[in-house]
């Protein structure tokens, strides 16, 4: 029954995000713009190891793009519902607080992951176009995008949802600004980060999988500090 509730909440969040043209367009524009920017970036870097740069860029950029798009979408699922008072009514429903939080996180993470897939596809096509090389993501990159990236996104949305639920509106503005700057800088300096010589391999993917799982466990642990009183008292 509980998994049904998680699905119900996740489905509604997903449909609501998809129905909001402004949000969808913002996410897609962002994914498209970064595809173009970084696809072009693979070409202009004069390197002997273009394949390594291509795969490394995908490994680094996909979770960043996914989390950034999720950041754009999460405000609607958490902060907006709080500002509108909807969350208070949901807290009165026969629905476990963790189930509500998880459902919302999945509902936000799924469209963000779809946007990430669009980014990865766009990035690949543009890199191939600009380099005129038959670049194809390595199998471990495909695994990363299909398995690890969604875990990262869900965990990140969980953390964002957590602070959006428990903090007041002013505190949220400050935290959101800091996170926005962090993500934006992380994406903006991705070229420099890639030049550090990231060696892409299954070992790296295994390491990232471990980090993603730890991140998820941390997020779930964070849920211990969610409680209704904390949420209700921070409703404006």
């Amino acid at each position: 029954m509980r998994s049904n509730k998680v699905y119900t909440v996740a489905r509604r969040e997903f449909l609501d995000i998809v129905a909001n043209k402004n949000t969808v367009v913002a996410g897609l524009l962002f994914a498209g713009w970064f595809s173009w920017l970084h696809g072009l970036g693979v070409t202009v870097k004069e390197t002997d190891n273009m394949v390594q740069l291509f795969n490394g860029s995908l490994i680094y950029l996909t979770p960043m793009v996914g989390v950034f798009v999720a950041y754009i979408y999460s405000g609607q699922a958490f902060l907006f519902e709080k500002a509108e008072g909807i969350i208070e009514t949901l807290l009165c429903a026969p629905l476990n607080l963790r189930a509500l939080w998880l459902g919302k996180s999945i509902g936000v993470a799924f469209p963000a992951w779809l946007a990430t897939l669009i980014f990865a596809a766009g990035f690949t096509l543009l890199a191939r176009h600009y380099t005129e090389a038959a670049l194809v993501p390595a199998l471990y990159v495909v695994f990363h995008v299909l398995v690890i990236v969604p875990v990262f996104i869900v965990a990140a949305v969980g953390v964002m949802g957590f602070w959006q639920l428990v903090l007041g509106m002013r505190e949220n503005q400050i935290v959101n600004l800091i996170v926005f700057l962090g993500l934006f800088l992380g994406l903006s300096f991705s070229g420099q980060i890639m030049q550090l010589g990231l060696v892409t391999s299954w070992q790296l993917i295994g390491l990232l999988l471990g980090v993603a799982i730890l991140f998820l466990v941390f997020t779930w642990w964070l849920g211990r500090f969610l409680n209704k009183e904390r949420i209700v008292r921070s409703i404006p």
């Binding site: 509604r12 449909l15 609501d16 509108e84 008072g85 208070e88 009514t89």
Partner: peptide
């Protein structure tokens, strides 16, 4: 039925 309607406007 609290102070807010708790409805989703796009739906």
């Amino acid at each position: 039925l609290l102070e807010h309607d708790a409805l989703y406007k796009r739906m």
